[in-house]
């Protein structure tokens, strides 16, 4: 489970950034008092345009950066106070995730398994499971630099799941991928749900959200504008399509926590 309460994150602006953004403010609010809950066995989607605060929120959930205020609980542990416990239970995948080009999939997976204290038996079992599932056996010993984008994405997926995390965070996971490669991610997200894991993913592609999510929150300029189940979203739409409804909500910009 993920519980987020009144989460805020602001960044100090340099004088160069103040000039760039034409402001006298000394800090910029990237996330401004958001709250939501993600349940195990459900997929929660954080939807918003570029610069809405999605990535910052997910980075805070994943302990990469610290909140300015507010609390986050991941799998029963406080992100600020028990960051290491959270990290043990979290998987993190982004569309822009890179891999070490000079290492092989085998070496990368072993590296992350060791960093996550995965036992040898569990590592071998999970590796075999994903290698068979994603058809990775043929390129397991090739260097990442020699692999196609699709192959690399399969390695990223296995890396994310190698320690069998309770909570999986996907930050625009299909960004920049072709439909066939993106399909692997979609399948992974579904499998995580079936396995009873807590899944949160950010996107600005409405069709992807419609396909996967149980609950959603629309975020813009650091505030949550809409938050409900996907079922209610579909039922209460005031426009003809999901994308049009998303755009309408963002444009009207009436935050529910304003």
């Amino acid at each position: 489970m993920i519980k987020v309460e009144n989460l805020k994150k602001s960044f100090k602006l340099t004088s160069k950034q103040q000039k760039e953004f034409n402001t006298t403010d000394t800090e910029a609010k990237s996330v401004d008092g958001i709250s939501f809950t993600c349940q195990p066995g459900k997929i929660f989607s954080l939807l918003g345009p570029n610069g809405a605060g999605k990535t910052t929120t997910l980075r805070m959930l994943s302990t990469i950066i610290k909140p300015t205020s507010g609390t986050i609980e991941v799998a029963g542990f406080n992100v600020d106070m028990q960051a290491n416990e959270v990290r043990k239970r979290i998987g993190f995948l982004t569309g822009s995730t890179g891999l070490y080009e000079r290492l092989t999939p085998d070496e990368i997976l072993k590296y992350y398994a060791d960093l996550n204290d995965v036992s040898k038996a569990d590592f071998e079992k999970r590796k075999k499971h994903y290698y068979d599932l994603l058809d990775m056996n043929d390129f397991a010993k090739k260097r990442i630099g020699q692999l196609s984008t699709g192959m690399k994405q399969k390695v990223s997926i296995t890396r994310t799941m190698i320690h069998d995390p309770e909570v999986v965070v996907f930050d625009e996971p299909t960004s920049g991928l072709d439909v066939i490669t993106a399909e692997n991610i979609i399948k992974l997200i579904r499998d995580c749900k079936t396995a009873g894991k807590t899944v949160i993913f950010s996107s600005h592609i409405m069709s992807e959200v419609d396909l996967l999510c149980d609950d959603l929150a629309i975020i813009n300029k650091g505030k949550i504008l809409y938050q409900d189940t996907m079922q209610h979203f579909r039922t209460n739409m005031k426009t003809a399509s999901l994308t049009a409804e998303f755009i309408r909500i963002v444009n009207e910009n009436q935050p529910i926590n304003a």
Partner: peptide, 14 residues
């Protein structure tokens, strides 16, 4: 630059 730092920082390593 390669985009590998985030995944490293999410591991349970100080």
């Amino acid at each position: 630059e390669r985009g590998t730092i985030e995944t490293l920082l999410v591991t349970p390593v100080n």
